[in-house]
Amino acid sequence: PSAPAALPAEPAENEALLSLPAVLDLTAAGALHAALLNHRGTPLALDAGEVKRLGGQCLQLLLSADRTWAADGVPIRLQGASEAFDRDLGFMGLSRDDLFQRTAA
């Protein structure tokens, strides 16, 4: 089976980069929400390379961000996901391909 089409590794024009913290749990959810709101309307790359733990609350925020950016017609993508990020996504029944897999229109 062929892999889903990946978003380009090169940054989009005017793309912001948001490095996700190592621990994305309930205590990190407020700061993540604020950071996402701060970048709304801007093409965004989320760097998950340093994530050591992903909790359900922050996953909900990431899923919501995908839908929000899609509704706004603005690209959002995930880059550099750590093994722990992928592992925790798997614990919640998802894979990296389930997040931000659409291409920009």
Rank of each mutant, 00 (worst) to 15 (best):
A65V: 06
A34P: 06
R87S: 09
R40T: 14
Q101D: 13
L59W: 05
V51T: 10
P4N: 03
A28K: 04
P4H: 14
Q101Y: 00
W69Q: 05
A84Y: 02
T68W: 08
L62Q: 03
P1R: 09
S82V: 05
L46W: 12
E83Y: 11
E50V: 10
L54H: 05
L54D: 04
L54K: 04
G49W: 09
R40V: 11
L46N: 01
A48T: 08
Q60Y: 00
L37E: 14
R102N: 14
A65H: 03
A28S: 15
E10F: 05
L32A: 14
E13F: 09
T68C: 12
A71R: 13
L99M: 08
S82F: 07
E50N: 06
R67N: 12
Q79W: 07
S2Q: 08
Q60K: 02
L37C: 11
F100Y: 13
P75G: 08
R102F: 02
K52R: 08
F91Q: 00
T42Y: 01
L32S: 08
V23W: 05
P1M: 04
A31V: 08
H39E: 08
A16L: 03
G30V: 13
E50R: 15
R96N: 12
G80E: 03
L37K: 13
G80V: 01
E83K: 14
L59I: 15
T68F: 10
E13M: 01
R87H: 15
P75T: 11
G41T: 09
T68G: 02
L61P: 01
A34H: 11
L26F: 03
L36C: 07
R53C: 00
R53S: 04
D25A: 14
P1W: 06
Q57T: 15
H39Q: 15
L36F: 09
P4R: 15
A65Q: 02
L89V: 05
A29V: 07
L24D: 00
G41E: 04
A3Y: 06
A28M: 11
S95Q: 12
T103V: 08
T42G: 01
E15L: 13
E50A: 15
G56A: 09
G73N: 09
A71Q: 07
P11N: 10
W69S: 01
N38M: 15
S19N: 02
P8D: 12
D25E: 12
F100S: 04
L24I: 04
P75C: 12
D25G: 15
A3N: 13
T68D: 13
E83Q: 10
Q79F: 02
D25T: 07
P21Y: 11
A48Y: 00
